[in-house]
Design a protein around this nucleic acid. Structure first.
Length: 301
DNA sequence: CAAGTGCCTTTATC
DNA sequence: AGATAAAGGCACT
C-alpha cells in the first residue's frame, strides 16, 4: 500500500488549495477520534488496521503509509468546506468558532471502530477514553509494525465477541464491557451492514443503531456523524448542553431552560429537544456546527 | 497527598 | 411518559 521497494515507507504529498483547507490540529484534537498522538512534527495514528503518520507545513499535507485516495477520504477533503461553513454560519458565536478553527473537518471514520469507541466513551473524559481504547487495541487488535514501532489495528467484531466480559473489563471498560460484548456478538450474528446504513436516511439509520446494546441517542448521533456521513446529526453531551444554554437559550421556553440548567442528566426527551434544535437551526450540516461549537467550548469554556 | 468532582450517557426500574 | 438511580474508574484540582 504505502510501503516502498526496500521496506521503507513512501512519503506522499497533497497540495491543499485555499478553497480546500485542513486544520490538522483541530481536526485531530477536537475529540472525534481517539487514536492520534502528536510526536514532534508528525501525527501518528492507526486508522482501522493501518498505522500512518501525517503532518502539515503551510499548504502542503505530507503523509506516509497511506495512499492519497485513502487520506482524501479519511480527512473528507472532498467535502466542500467553504460551502458547509457558509451554511452553518448562522450567528456570531458559530462564526467565532469557525474563524478560530478554520479547516476543522469531520473525519470519515470506520463505522465499526467509531461505534465501539463511542460506546466506550459514554460518561468518560477524553484522556480516559484514549487510554481505554489503547488498552483495548493492544489486547485484542493485531500488531502492525511501522517505522520499527509497534501499533495495533482496531479489534474486529469477532475478536471482541470472543473476548470475555472480564477480559474487556481489564481494559478499563467498566460497565461498558457488557455493551461492547453484546454489540460485537450482534454484529457477528446479524452482520449489521454499515454500507446500507450509509444509504439510509438519517432517521432510519438512527433507529437501527439505537437497537444495539450501549447505544443511546448520543452514541448513535456520533456514529452517524463521524462515520456514516449524516451531517445533520447533532450530538448533545454535557458540553453542548452548556453551549446551548449559554448562547441559544432564547430559542427555548424559559421553563425548559431552567429545568436544563438544574437537572444533572438530560433525559431522553431533553436530548431530543436540544438535538432537534441543532438540526433545525443549523440545517443539513448541523454536525459541522456541533463540532466547531464543542471544540470551542472545550478550549475556552 | 487525599478527597472530591466531573466525565462527548445508557439502562433498568418505578 | 417521565423521572430517578446506578454504574466503574480515571483524570484533574
Amino acid at each position: 500500500m504505502g510501503q516502498g521497494d526496500h521496506g521503507r515507507y513512501v512519503s506522499v504529498k497533497i497540495h491543499l488549495e485555499p478553497a480546500c483547507p485542513l486544520n490538522l490540529e483541530a481536526t485531530l484534537c477536537c475529540g472525534q477520534a481517539f487514536r492520534w498522538e502528536k510526536q514532534g512534527e508528525w501525527w501518528f495514528g492507526v486508522v482501522g488496521q493501518v498505522p500512518l503518520k501525517i503532518s502539515k507545513a503551510g499548504d502542503e499535507l505530507r503523509f506516509e503509509n497511506a495512499s492519497t485516495c485513502f487520506v482524501r477520504n479519511y480527512f473528507s477533503l472532498d467535502d466542500n468546506l467553504p460551502e458547509i461553513l457558509r451554511r452553518i454560519s448562522k450567528d456570531s458565536h458559530v462564526k467565532g468558532a469557525v474563524r478560530e478553527f478554520a479547516g476543522l473537518r469531520i473525519l470519515r471514520q470506520d463505522p465499526w471502530e467509531c461505534l465501539v469507541s463511542y460506546i466506550c466513551a459514554t460518561y468518560k473524559s477524553i484522556p480516559a477514553i484514549k487510554n481505554m481504547l489503547l488498552r483495548l487495541c493492544t489486547k485484542f487488535g493485531d500488531e502492525v509494525l511501522f517505522e520499527g514501532r509497534s501499533f495495533h489495528g482496531f479489534p474486529t467484531p469477532k475478536g471482541l465477541a470472543q473476548a470475555t466480559v472480564g477480559e474487556l473489563g481489564e481494559c478499563g471498560l467498566g460497565y461498558r464491557a457488557i455493551y461492547v460484548s453484546e454489540t460485537a456478538k450482534t454484529m457477528l450474528e446479524t452482520g449489521l451492514d454499515f454500507e446500507s446504513l450509509r444509504r439510509m436516511p438519517y432517521e432510519e439509520a438512527r433507529k437501527t443503531l439505537l437497537c444495539l446494546s450501549g447505544v443511546g441517542p448520543k452514541v448513535a448521533d456520533c456514529v452517524l456523524l463521524f462515520s456514516l456521513g449524516k451531517f445533520e446529526a447533532f450530538p448533545v453531551d454535557v458540553w453542548m448542553r452548556r453551549v446551548i444554554l449559554r448562547h441559544y437559550a432564547k430559542h427555548f421556553p424559559r421553563e425548559f431552560v431552567s429545568k436544563m440548567t438544574c437537572d444533572k442528566s438530560l433525559g431522553n426527551a431533553g436530548y431530543e429537544r436540544l438535538s432537534l434544535f441543532g438540526r433545525n437551526y443549523f440545517g443539513k450540516y448541523a454536525g459541522y456546527a456541533q463540532e466547531h461549537l464543542y471544540h470551542y467550548e472545550r478550549m475556552h469554556g
